[in-house]
Design a protein around this nucleic acid. Structure first.
Length: 324
DNA sequence: ACAAGCACCTGAAAGC
DNA sequence: TGCTTTCAGGTGCTTG
């Protein structure tokens, strides 16, 4: 089916929207005209193995953090190369100059954001839907979608993102006060994410429970895959209104969310070597998923065909018998 | 405050 | 076979 094209007044308004982040620098990107420098000229030629697209959910981001941290923490930035500044928001203009010669204190994480903490300022990195980071040697030629490098001597942190939904922003003040992080809900593996919290928070919410869980203001790091899995394991139907959640179900749900995320992080630990010289992709997609991606295959508990629907434009899979 | 829907992007898959 | 269209999805923003 053809995508509806916005028409009339509303369409004009939508088309005229400017893509920017309110607190991000308003870097302007003029189109490259003939004769001008084409940023893509920096890339090696296109025929390289297409990077596998894995959806980075919280376990992937945490594994990435653990994978890159030992190689770059405590080291000093020797060079920054931005080949493609047009990510979800323009790469912060002052970033390269700001971190040049600076020492990286630590690699932190808040939700799905990675925080490269320097002595003065923080680089915020989000992997979007298809982003990945890996450590390469300085002489390794960039592939087609390798959009930026941050070099630490002989170790280069390289960012690849075919769909460019990720971002690289420079924040000089307290990063946790930045608008992207300030309103985030609790960490799912932290002590603030309790059954009581989830229960109270869901009281007046009429949206489907799955959508409620995927809202980063409720809890961070629960994307489509893990929302499907956790709801299946907790025996809760994704389309139910959040407000119908019982206290007992809140307990089950919190426990299952913690379980599926922790298990994935544990499994990711076995693929850390992939971050150096490899493709930078943790091997999560190999893990066994109970419902996500199984379409209408039989439920692993009762054998009945799973149901696949679209909810809020997201694929949702559940068992009509095991989930109530 | 809450809810709904769009935008961003491009490789892969499906459709013709 | 080859071209065109649709789908996938995280998440901030705008509108209702």
């Amino acid at each position: 089916m053809r995508r509806p094209t916005p028409v009339g007044r509303v369409g004009r308004i939508m088309r005229s929207r400017i893509r920017r982040h309110p607190t991000a620098e308003r870097a302007r990107h003029t189109k490259t005209s003939p004769g001008q420098h084409d940023p893509r000229a920096c890339y090696s030629t296109r025929p390289n193995p297409t990077p596998q697209i894995a959806m980075p959910e919280l376990p992937e981001v945490e594994t990435t953090r653990r994978g890159i941290a030992p190689h770059i923490e405590g080291r000093t930035v020797t060079e920054v190369a931005i080949r493609q500044p047009k990510l979800r928001w323009p790469v912060s203009e002052p970033l390269a100059a700001a971190i040049q010669g600076k020492r990286l204190r630590e690699v932190g994480r808040r939700g799905k954001y990675l925080l490269l903490g320097f002595d003065s300022g923080t680089a915020l990195i989000h992997l979007g839907m298809s982003g990945s980071l890996r450590i390469v040697k300085p002489d390794e030629p960039p592939r087609f979608h390798d959009h930026f490098d941050i070099a630490f001597g002989n170790r280069v942190l390289r960012y690849c993102d075919p769909r460019r939904f990720g971002c690289l922003l420079w924040v000089e003040s307290d990063p946790y006060g930045h608008s992207l992080l300030a309103s985030l809900g609790p960490e799912p593996l932290g002590e603030d994410f309790t059954p009581e919290y989830l229960f109270q928070r869901s009281r007046k919410r009429r949206v489907p429970i799955k959508q409620f869980l995927m809202d980063s203001k409720t809890v961070v790091g629960v994307g489509n895959i893990y929302a499907n899995e956790a709801l299946y394991m907790a025996g809760i139907k994704p389309i139910r209104k959040a407000s119908t959640l019982t206290k007992r179900q809140s307990e089950l749900l919190v426990a299952q969310i913690r379980f599926v995320l922790q298990r994935s992080i544990d499994q990711g630990g076995t693929t850390l070597r992939d971050f150096v010289g490899g493709d930078g992709q943790p091997g999560y997609f190999k893990q066994q998923l109970l419902v996500y991606g199984r379409g209408t295959e039989p439920c692993k508990q009762c054998g009945k065909a799973l149901k696949e629907i679209r909810m809020n434009n997201r694929t949702t899979v559940y068992c009509t018998d095991c989930q109530r």
